[in-house]
Amino acid sequence: MTILLIALGAAIGAPLRYLTDRAVQARHGSPFPWGTLTVNVAGSVLLGGLLAAPVAPGVTALVGTGFCGALTTWSTLSYETLRLARTGERRPAYANVTLSVVAGLGAAFLGYAVVTALSG
């Protein structure tokens, strides 16, 4: 049953990642990957909140592993960073890594703190 929950979450998260990335990137004329940053930060805040919530293992599989796992993407972050660096966009490449890690961790802590405060 767990594998089905993970697959269901991923089936929702992956298309949402793609659609969100395309919608965000369409609004920016820069080569910086704002769409990937957006989905990674959104997934991090959701995962941080999920970690703080008293939920059943099935919910963690569905939302955490399936949905957030498919919504967020370290591989695309890596690819886009290398693409920036290879095209001479070294500062944006460094900014992408730094901003993604700092914002992602900050978002996870924020999600955790908000859910903890609301449930306590």
Rank of each mutant, 00 (worst) to 15 (best):
104 G>F: 08
30 S>C: 08
40 N>Q: 03
66 G>P: 13
93 A>D: 01
33 P>V: 03
112 Y>W: 15
97 V>D: 00
34 W>N: 07
45 V>F: 00
95 A>M: 13
81 T>Q: 05
34 W>M: 09
25 Q>G: 04
76 T>C: 10
80 E>A: 00
7 A>V: 01
9 G>E: 09
35 G>N: 05
67 F>V: 13
90 R>S: 15
83 R>P: 07
2 T>S: 12
70 A>C: 12
108 A>R: 07
14 A>L: 07
54 P>A: 15
33 P>Y: 06
75 S>I: 10
64 G>Q: 02
40 N>S: 04
76 T>L: 09
89 E>I: 06
48 G>H: 04
93 A>C: 02
110 L>S: 04
29 G>S: 11
67 F>C: 11
62 L>Y: 04
42 A>W: 10
61 A>H: 09
8 L>I: 12
28 H>Q: 14
96 N>L: 03
106 G>L: 04
5 L>T: 01
111 G>P: 09
100 S>C: 04
31 P>T: 14
116 T>L: 03
46 L>S: 09
96 N>S: 10
3 I>D: 12
13 G>L: 03
104 G>V: 05
105 L>A: 13
24 V>E: 03
65 T>A: 09
5 L>W: 06
92 P>I: 09
119 S>P: 12
64 G>I: 01
16 L>H: 06
106 G>C: 07
66 G>L: 10
112 Y>H: 15
63 V>E: 06
41 V>C: 08
120 G>W: 07
119 S>D: 14
109 F>T: 14
77 L>W: 14
102 V>K: 01
106 G>W: 03
11 A>G: 15
91 R>Q: 14
20 T>L: 14
52 A>E: 09
84 L>V: 00
14 A>N: 05
92 P>N: 12
12 I>H: 05
87 T>F: 12
83 R>E: 15
104 G>W: 08
109 F>I: 14
92 P>E: 11
95 A>N: 08
48 G>W: 05
83 R>L: 14
62 L>I: 00
115 V>W: 02
42 A>S: 15
98 T>Q: 03
70 A>K: 11
80 E>L: 02
18 Y>W: 11
29 G>V: 08
106 G>K: 06
31 P>S: 14
62 L>D: 05
30 S>P: 09
71 L>I: 08
42 A>V: 15
44 S>M: 06
13 G>K: 07
9 G>W: 08
67 F>Y: 13
15 P>I: 06
6 I>W: 10
98 T>N: 02
40 N>Y: 01
43 G>T: 01
3 I>W: 13
57 P>D: 15
42 A>E: 14
95 A>C: 11
45 V>E: 00
103 A>H: 01
35 G>A: 03
62 L>W: 08
24 V>Y: 00
55 V>R: 05
82 L>V: 14
58 G>D: 08
